[in-house]
Write a protein that binds this DNA or RNA. Structure first.
Lengths: 209, 209
DNA sequence: ACAAAAATTAAACAATTGTTTGAATTAAAT
DNA sequence: ATTTAATTCAAACAATTGTTTAATTTTTGT
């Protein structure tokens, strides 16, 4: 489905509120007030609150896949370089769309709407498949260890990034960076997170004594 | 506060439902039905749905701290041994009380009730303080690297375990362990998680070329 | 300028929400 | 056995929920 400006505006405000208060904690009137529209417009444009949630996923999920697909096929990159790029890709994706990922976390714990749960899970499965492929490639080339638990690795990447996103205020205070501007702090966080996870992955993947 | 049997039964059923459906997604009638009590009993025993949630945290949070405190002071253990024990401690705690940790995750994303948010955060901060202490000890003894981002480390531990808990069904299918009994699979998961995170921590903490 | 379509609105809808009531039942105390 | 307190219950409560209605305004196409 294609969304017009007004619809996207509503979706993005709903996204923000769903992230802050959860799906059930957000009323259609909350959304209408924040978006400065009439309550009926939500049913008018989306059919229902539930369908509005589905529209949010439709809007956000589409853009994910393409960039990653082409990455794998690139022959000029070594397996570890690809893995590293995938890590940065993931960090960027989550930290650029923090609200959406909070919403997605909420969906993954409270498994209510099967259609949305399916959408959220498909992202996860695709991720797993891609990384698995990548690691096999590295193993064939003798650059990676033979025994690697891919799922645990992915869980570490996803979990670490999620955890950092959720507790970034705390991280900021701990590092005494309250005075630096938001976007600058975000860059610092990304950079450190990137190095951190790459170090972890290297330790798991690479052959050493 | 002290809870009697009936209260604990209600709390634990509420815990399960809050974990599955979220706080706002669970009605007091859902809880009453599942617990086979009258709806009014919830107000009677706890005052309100909100207070029931607070009671859940009161019941669960209390037991956490003591065991860890004594661990740090133990002179017979090396820093890395202590860190490893802390990792196992955390894995056990989360996987033994999965529902509660799902509830806590929900609280941490949708920051509504300040009292509960405070309770959840205090656990995190205490954790951070303890591990920081431990690492400083290891650094003094020359066993750990000088530059270590403790918060990122903790986020990796907490995030990885949370992620594993949330997606354990998927992990089970991926490893074709659907036929093994629940508790046996849980043991396998714990063991692998333990090794996994310890490996990660070792890579971050230990000095190498 | 006019007619058709789309967008917007206030009001109403029935259903569900958390909570309270006041009577009935059970348990404990004297 | 009688009184008192604690527990349980069905029913009612007002407030809030998502959704629909029907009228009105705005936009679009001709």
């Amino acid at each position: 489905m294609e969304f017009n400006e007004k619809q996207i505006q509503i979706i993005e405000i709903a996204e923000k509120l769903f992230a802050e208060r959860g799906f059930d904690g957000t009323t259609v009137r909350d959304i209408a007030d924040e978006a400065e529209i009439n309550v009926a417009m939500i049913s008018y444009y989306f059919g229902s609150k539930e369908k509005l949630m589905e529209a949010l996923f439709e809007l956000r999920v589409g853009s994910v896949i393409i960039r990653v697909e082409s990455l794998i096929k690139d022959e000029s990159l070594s397996p570890i370089e690809k893995v590293n790029m995938l890590i940065d890709e993931h960090i960027d994706r989550v930290l650029q769309k923090q609200c959406f990922h909070k919403v997605m976390m909420g969906v993954l714990v409270t498994n209510k709407n099967p259609a949305i749960l399916e959408a959220a899970n498909s992202i996860k499965i695709r991720n797993a498949a891609i990384i698995t492929e990548l690691i096999k490639e590295g193993q064939k080339k003798g650059q990676f260890k033979k025994k690697v638990d891919v799922i645990l690795m992915i869980n570490t990447m996803v979990g670490t990034v999620s955890q950092c996103m959720m507790s970034q205020q705390y991280y900021r205070e701990f590092n005494k960076q309250q005075d630096v501007p938001d976007d600058e702090f975000l860059l610092t966080l990304k950079r450190r997170l990137s190095i951190h996870i790459k170090t972890l992955f290297k330790a798991i993947l690479t052959n050493e004594a």
